[in-house]
């Protein structure tokens, strides 16, 4: 669990982060969203002390991070950034082994861990271990960057726009993979993004920041249905709101008994996909694979924020 208490960062007269407090529960994903200059990256960098706070504290599992030497602290926290920051003079394997090597793991264990991670990220170890970073595609470099951040099994992972340099197709896949991986490993994750779509797709909690202040911190559906300020509302984008709400739930959440003609939709598809299918095929009812139906009427209800939670 990370507790951020009254964290403030000032450079001379400018306040970059202004009295921010928030808590991220163990195993959850918190997405920090805001425009550039909102202070979200500075807030993230204060967690691993790449930036020293002017005032306030960060507690990780109850321990004040100010009491731990910065380089020791950072070896315990995974860190992945936009443009991956891989060391160009080291092989993929050496890059991934960075933190375990710093922690002086036995060599055999490091080697096993590197191969394990490469496999986890769908990169064949025999093929990729000894390649140089510049020989990989953008998507592969990004995966190696995340693998490197996870190498020493940190309980906390910080990511700063990790998918910022990827094209939209690879990006959606990378988000999906990250989400699955995080669920599997149970890592607590704080991710900075300027993209509300990404925040909604990944975050268990979303923190909206503007001009250094935390405007709202809550689960995605709360942010979408009850934006605290006009700025939050603007960031969500009103035209997109119903679709973002629908993308939060799956067909399985909304399935009701019944039968309908036509091709069926898988239960793990999002409600947004279900709506798209209704509109495209001109149907009011969709059968769900494995039995039951979703109705257009219920989808419309959900899109107004009445929520799948009520079913």
């Amino acid at each position: 669990m990370i507790e951020i208490r009254n964290l403030t960062k000032r450079y001379d007269e400018t306040t970059v982060v202004d009295d921010v407090s928030l808590t991220v529960e163990t195993g959850q994903i918190a997405a920090l969203v805001g425009t550039s200059g909102s202070g979200k990256t500075t807030l993230l960098r204060m967690i691993n002390r790449l930036v020293e706070p002017t005032s306030g504290t960060v507690l990780i599992d109850g321990t004040d991070t100010a009491t731990i030497a910065p380089h020791i602290l950072r070896r315990r926290i995974g860190y992945a950034i936009q443009g991956h920051g891989l060391f160009p003079h080291r092989t993929v394997g050496q890059n991934i082994a960075t933190v375990p090597t710093l922690l002086k793991w036995p060599e055999a264990e490091i080697r096993a861990r590197v191969d394990e991670l490469l496999e986890l990220f769908q990169l064949d170890p025999a093929q990729f271990r000894d390649r140089m970073p510049h020989e990989l595609s953008g998507g592969q470099q990004q995966r190696v960057g995340v693998a490197r951040a996870l190498a020493a099994r940190p309980e906390l992972l910080l990511m700063d726009e990790p998918f910022g340099a990827l094209d939209p197709v690879i990006r959606a896949k990378a988000q999906e993979d990250l989400r699955a991986l995080q669920r599997q490993l149970g890592t607590t994750l704080v991710i900075v993004t300027h993209d509300m779509e990404e925040a909604v797709a990944l975050g268990d909690r979303i923190a909206v920041m503007d001009k250094g202040r935390l405007l709202q911190y809550g689960p995605p559906d709360e942010i979408l249905t009850a934006p605290a300020t006009p700025f939050v509302q603007a960031l969500i984008g009103e035209g997109e709101r119903p679709f973002r709400l629908l993308s939060l739930s799956t067909v399985a959440d909304l399935v009701q008994p019944g039968e309908a003609p036509g091709p069926a939709i898988p239960p793990e598809a999002s409600l947004r996909d279900a709506l798209a299918e209704c509109l495209w095929s001109g149907r009011e009812l969709l059968p769900v694979e494995g039995g039951g139906i979703v109705t257009l009427a219920r989808l419309r209800e959900c899109a107004t924020g009445a929520g799948a939670a009520t079913t």
């Binding site: 020791i72 315990r76 710093l102």
Partner: peptide, 10 residues
């Protein structure tokens, strides 16, 4: 980004 990553890795 390399400098930043090196610091961030500890």
């Amino acid at each position: 980004d390399v400098t930043e990553a090196a610091r961030g890795m500890g």
